[in-house]
């Protein structure tokens, strides 16, 4: 797996690239200002030490005025740069865009790929795939408190506000895996509320999306069957959904394609069998305060459950 990229300075999409540009404009202008002012200060100190001669107040006023004037000019440059970037960012909205609805929850992301045809809707959680080179319009909502969606490699933040709905437009220009994270403090596990963004080539993306539309595969082995039983008859189904089974809970992430995701616990730990076992056995140890309780499954049940969950590609 590619290393996780979550940096403003490593843009992978047009929006982030524009912001990166703006950053460097700001950085250099500010650096010049910084050095100039400090140089002036150093000169002032040096000069003041050398001679006590006073320049006339008029000259001084002129100099200070000029300095302020130059500052204002620098400011105008930055303002213009900012304004241009702002307009550019707004320009991405497109008709043929992919529409994704992301709903914030304490502390995970509910993801829906919208489609005018409701039966083509895809529900998943904590990991999104986007096609390279195609604009994506994300509808941002929240089910509880304010969260903020931030995928630095692709764009800046957008708050997920309860009772309101906002939008953010982004586009990935390079295939890769990018990490996003909740940026608005949202309670106990704000730290462990991450989102994996996979930018796929368009064909890969379509393949992925159509795969995601399918329900979970039926269990093949006895153990997997037992595992599904644990889900349907045990505590899992009270909160989680797995399409194709009786599990229809919506208070926790959808697990239909859990095994295809790279992390569990909203980016808390990599999705391996061992981690998954540890997570199910004691989620409070890994992510204290999260809403999943320890379920107290017997080890035989846990193994069967893992066998089944591993099939949820």
């Amino acid at each position: 797996m590619a290393p996780l990229i979550q940096s403003v300075l490593h843009p992978a999409g047009v929006q982030a690239a524009r912001l990166n540009q703006l950053w460097w404009v700001m950085f250099w202008v500010c650096t010049v200002v910084f050095i100039s002012v400090l140089t002036a200060l150093a000169m002032a100190i040096a000069r003041g030490r050398r001679s006590a001669s006073n320049a006339s107040d008029a000259t001084l006023t002129g100099s200070v005025g000029a300095a302020v004037g130059i500052s204002v000019a620098a400011l105008l440059v930055l303002l213009t740069a900012s304004e241009i970037t702002g307009r550019d960012l707004d320009a991405l909205k497109a008709q043929n865009a992919l529409r994704i609805q992301i709903t914030g929850n304490q502390w995970w992301w509910d993801v829906q790929y919208l489609n005018p045809d409701p039966s083509l809707t895809v529900v998943t959680a904590n990991e999104i795939h986007v096609p390279v080179g195609r604009p994506v319009g994300i509808v941002a909502k929240s089910n509880d408190v304010i969260h903020s969606l931030w995928i630095p490699a692709l764009h800046g933040k957008r708050d997920l506000l309860p009772g309101r709905q906002s939008e953010i437009w982004l586009q990935a220009d390079r295939a890769g895996v990018y990490r996003g994270q909740c940026a608005e403090y949202c309670g106990a596990q704000h730290a462990k509320m991450a989102l994996t963004v996979v930018a796929d080539l368009p064909d890969d993306f379509e393949r992925w999306l159509s795969h995601m539309r399918g329900p979970a595969p039926p269990p093949a082995t006895e153990s997997q069957m037992r595992g599904r039983d644990v889900i349907e008859r045990g505590p899992c189904a009270m909160c989680h959904s797995i399409a194709g089974t009786l599990a229809g809970g919506r208070t926790a992430p959808d697990l239909t394609h859990l095994a295809s995701r790279s992390a569990i616990g909203a980016g808390s730990i990599p999705n391996t069998r061992g981690n998954l076992a540890g997570w199910i056995a004691d989620p409070q140890h890994i992510k204290p305060g999260n809403k999943m309780p320890a379920t107290g499954l017997a080890s035989e049940e846990l193994q069967a459950l893992l066998d089944y969950l591993e099939t949820l590609k």
Partner: peptide, 8 residues
């Protein structure tokens, strides 16, 4: 009866 519903 299927296509006018999301998922299952």
């Amino acid at each position: 009866g299927i296509t006018t519903w999301p998922g299952e």
